[in-house]
Design a protein around this nucleic acid. Sequence first.
DNA 1: TGTAATAAATGGTCTGACCATTCGGAAAGA
DNA 2: TCTTTCCGAATGGTCAGACCATTTATTACA
Lengths: 244, 244
Amino acid sequence: MTDLFHAAKQNRIFQDVVDQIQEAIISGKIEVGEKLPPERELKEMLQTSRSTIREALRVLEQKGLIEIKLGMGGGAIVTTVSADQVTESLDLLIKSQNVSLNHLAEFRERVEGDVAELAAGRVTDEDIRELKKLLEDAKKYVDMGIDYITHFWEADKKVHLAIADISRNPIYISICKTIHYNIIHYLMKYLPMRVNVMAENYKDLCDIVESVELGKSDDARNLAKGHVRRFNRYMKKMQDEETV
Amino acid sequence: MTDLFHAAKQNRIFQDVVDQIQEAIISGKIEVGEKLPPERELKEMLQTSRSTIREALRVLEQKGLIEIKLGMGGGAIVTTVSADQVTESLDLLIKSQNVSLNHLAEFRERVEGDVAELAAGRVTDEDIRELKKLLEDAKKYVDMGIDYITHFWEADKKVHLAIADISRNPIYISICKTIHYNIIHYLMKYLPMRVNVMAENYKDLCDIVESVELGKSDDARNLAKGHVRRFNRYMKKMQDEETV
DNA sequence: TGTAATAAATGGTCTGACCATTCGGAAAGA
DNA sequence: TCTTTCCGAATGGTCAGACCATTTATTACA
């Protein structure tokens, strides 16, 4: 029913099972948290075989509609659809379309700007406390020197994702996750391993957080955008030198 | 390997099969268009049972990595990953009511702005010809009146997607596709069925295309953003009235 | 030569068995 | 009586082997 996307391979029984269960979930006939009947019962209910039921469950699981637990009291539990599936498919898309660093960078500049802008308009005191804590972590790694650059990037990522959370927009949140998951590989490869890069980056983060705290949307946007852009330039430069 | 997202239910053999095949596909060891070995061979190669292989194939199929054909000469064919899976997951997310129209609208405003800006910097004469042709189509439906509003939205969508193409950034292209696929449902539901809405919209499109043609990035961005924003306001108003 | 019958390859389904994990309750011990 | 241990049932995971349905290639026949 939802699948306007696949050319309806007909006569696939498991697809019919998928459709029926998905319909039941989306329409709310089965609540989130509820358990589907065990495979052996579904088999009877739908007058089919267990293997067919299981293939259908694999599809539903991959769609993020159910989660399967082992053992007695286990089974297929209807889950709240999260952004994870969007993230995963976007991730696959990026990986297999050979999206270049430039494409990703161009996209990231704008997304991080948007997110910072939105966050500045929606931040709470609680959020600020969380951000400050994350900044402290980052600062720690800056002080510990270049050997901790990996830890620093982790902390940096956490700050960015925290800001994304503050945007309160699940689309931006999942997209930021995807970007960071994909960009880390480039960061490691192309960013110069110098202490002042860490320090510079840390300062940027502080500035962005400050604008967000003060609710200065435009500043937050521009700072975030500029921040990402500068690092994109670093990376591009390194990349170009490499290919000479 | 790609799945940092699921809590790694270990000891699931089919998951291991999924990972191995996915790795082979993403890394390019198997080219797009190539066929995977038949199930009975995979079974031997991976020292497992056919049902396990099949469950893995269901997952890969759902991920959009393979496509399965029946009969002799059929089998699992590696496909180019399209935006369809992203679209489908986002679609599910929206249906499960974790993403509201507001979230989608907020996101779209910015994305369309970005895309128009990029397009203005990269457009060719060829592109302009194509855009002008699409605008003519749209105009036709405007003139034909309110009964053709569905056709008009189709034409409108084509213009937006054409502009996305001109951005030359596959990430933006995929995301625009996803947005438009998901927003059409709201358009139908909430946009007032008045002729002047069509006319207004058409005029916006013309303005945007003109800025793109002239390479005025900032204008293009602001026009596109404003265009989307106004329609978001329309939709929000209708939605609010509905829930009173 | 062209068309129809046939065979072979391949995915789809079914059955029934056994294994692995988990949880609750029964049994054993303190 | 309370706690700990252990066993067994429920449930998902895997396996083997059979047969069906669809599609394509081949062969036979007119």
